[in-house]
Design a protein around this nucleic acid. Structure first.
Lengths: 227, 227
DNA sequence: AGAAAAATGTGATTAAAATCACACAGGAGA
DNA sequence: TCTCCTGTGTGATTTTAATCACATTTTTCT
């Protein structure tokens, strides 16, 4: 099914492209609805094309043996898949859905063709990859300079939340296992740390959500660096 | 002083550019000799332009308080500085010389102008940033899945070495402190681990160099992942 | 509804690495 | 040559977080 140009324009990655480029993309891209757990691609796969999230959440990860490290969680409006292009390199990471949703998909050969025709698309790609680079840098920074509490706090702040009367609410679309993988720690440690935060009144744990009561305190914890 | 096109062509980043683009770059770039310890730019600086190393070694790092994490070490032929472009974002990392050397420098405004004129330069930038992304991913992987021994081994393998009759020789252009910052650990731990490697016959520590005796064993250690 | 399977909570133990505290070496400079 | 300073080597101690081992809760499936 063809993608509408209005829908493309809503996506930050595409919003500043020329009408001509947009038209070409709309002509070649198509919709890809997905279920929770769907694997867009795996670490080591050949270049996979570009995905843009209209809805749903996707985890971007790296694994070894039975451990995984989530590099970041993508929300609607995010675009991913650019990291293995150019140069036919295998994808350094895997991408898997946390929730059901819909994405727009641009296959690699089409993308390649379009890149050659439209320098503004090339520029967009450059922006995407640079942004990712920035995020990775900050991840390295966290792993190197922050303890588990700080990393957990940081990750909670990055997760999508919406305001309610007693605080910001994060829907639990992920398990503690996932959270541990984001933070780069063990499930049990995350569990204990969450409980610690609760005892300190920073947040409240509910069955299917986490309510952040004291946002400022959480930010303070997230900013703490060791030594 | 103007840069010669032959010299540009030697640098991997520039080697595949069109003659026209090369000529333009040669016209605007200039030589920048530097001493050991010279700071090309610091974390947080505005976009700084592009540097290409003709000789010397540069550390690319990130710091917090009195701790630093070296993201990687650049050798001659490497190009850096692309990470803060486009979009006038502050540089996520700092770059400082480990040894004296010479680089070619392309100021940011000139670079910006050239990028708009030459799509192949844009493509080159994209390649540079993608490559960096790949390196960062692998750094995150190491920090998340490998212990100090493995990370140290990995880093020793990445450092520039040349073959001699009893093994590969790495010149000590860096202190153990630096090595610890590359590995993401403490100086003492690195020291002990080096000694451990020496005891196991993997390498030999000399006053101003490290001789790798058993390259294969070192590679094995580097590949070990926890759990 | 009831059984099975995930996911979560919590204590006890272990392990890895950071930190502390010095001794010592070697090179740079007066 | 003698000091000072930076870099190294090494033991002892502490800290943090990983691991192990279950109990308990919640969800899912039939």
């Amino acid at each position: 099914m063809a993608v509408t140009m209005q829908e493309l324009k809503v996506l930050p990655a595409f919003s500043r492209l020329s009408p001509l480029a947009l038209e070409h993309i709309a002509g070649t891209a198509h919709y890809l609805p997905f279920a929770a757990g769907f694997a867009f691609y795996q670490q080591g796969d050949p270049p996979t094309g570009l995905f843009s999230l209209l809805s749903g959440q996707v985890k971007f990860y790296r694994h070894s043996k039975d451990k995984i490290q989530i590099l970041y969680v993508l929300h609607e409006g995010s675009t991913f898949g650019a990291e293995s292009l150019p140069n036919d390199m295998p994808s350094p990471c895997g991408a898997q859905a946390l929730t059901p949703g819909t994405s727009i998909y641009l296959p690699p050969n089409e993308l390649h063709k379009l890149l050659l025709e439209h320098p503004d698309l090339l520029f967009m790609q450059l922006e995407l990859v640079t942004k990712q680079l920035r995020q990775f840098t900050s991840l390295v920074h966290s792993l190197a300079f922050r303890d588990v509490s700080a990393r957990l706090a940081e990750n909670l702040l990055k997760l999508k939340s919406y305001p309610t009367k007693d605080g910001f609410c994060i829907e639990r679309t992920f398990s503690q296992q996932d959270l541990a993988a984001m933070v780069g720690s063990a499930r049990e440690v995350v569990c204990r740390t969450l409980k610690k935060f609760e005892k300190e009144g920073v947040l409240r744990l509910e069955r299917s959500s986490i309510i952040i009561c004291d946002l400022n305190r959480l930010k303070e914890i997230a900013d703490q660096e060791i030594r």
